[in-house]
């Protein structure tokens, strides 16, 4: 059973829509009991860092999510969900889930428009089932103002160019984060979601 973690900060309807289109099914839940029984977890994301982590904590979800990850359950973080997997973000003062050793920084070049908003491509740097066979023109929808700096470069799966390369996907064992929105990326996101269902 796939559980889309509901912490009142994600655009959950879109993620569920795309999973169904990919031929899977999922439940949307913010209950620890459901997460304990999940075979896969998705942490979606829209919103600000502290708001997200505060709501996860209010539902006592961080510890149960960590337990599931240790038990080997695949966890996919999307956009803010990716950021919440990390240690910290400049956007907030609260610590993240700490499942990936990364910190988020705001895009700072004065000539860049922020948020980084729109369709962009991936440069896959490490082989991973989620990003298998990605074409050079495959495009994904991004909408974010903060980007990851990984403490261990081996965690980087893909980079994307926005005034220079930034980390657009990372993974540590069974925990994966993508900065873009596969649920809003047409057939390219659909393919990624299918690969996640097969993981």
């Amino acid at each position: 059973m796939i559980v889309i973690v509901d912490y009142e900060a994600g655009n959950i309807a879109s993620v569920l829509n795309m999973i169904r289109k990919a031929g899977g099914d999922a439940i949307v839940s913010g209950r620890a009991d459901d997460i304990k029984r999940a075979s896969k977890l998705i942490l979606p994301g829209v919103g600000s860092f502290d708001h997200g982590i505060t709501h996860l904590q209010a539902k006592s979800l961080p510890s149960v999510m960590r337990e599931r990850v240790v038990a080997g359950v695949p966890l996919l973080g999307i956009c803010l969900g990716m950021q919440l997997l990390a240690l910290r973000s400049e956007e907030g003062v609260q610590p993240g889930l700490g499942l990936i050793r990364a910190n988020f920084k705001r895009f700072g070049r004065p000539d860049l428009r922020v948020p980084h908003m729109g369709w962009n491509t991936l440069n896959v740097t490490r082989k991973h089932p989620l990003l298998d066979n990605i074409g050079e023109e495959d495009r994904y929808y991004f909408a974010h103002s903060y980007y990851a700096l990984c403490e261990d470069p081996a965690d980087v799966l893909a980079t994307t160019d926005y005034g220079g390369p930034f980390v657009s996907a990372y993974a540590q064992a069974n925990v994966v984060g993508v900065q873009f929105h596969p649920e809003k990326s047409h057939r390219f996101g659909l393919r990624l979601m299918k690969r996640f269902l097969e993981m």
Partner: peptide, 9 residues
Amino acid sequence: IADRFGSQS
């Protein structure tokens, strides 16, 4: 709205 849901929204 930005504080709660992010500027991108």
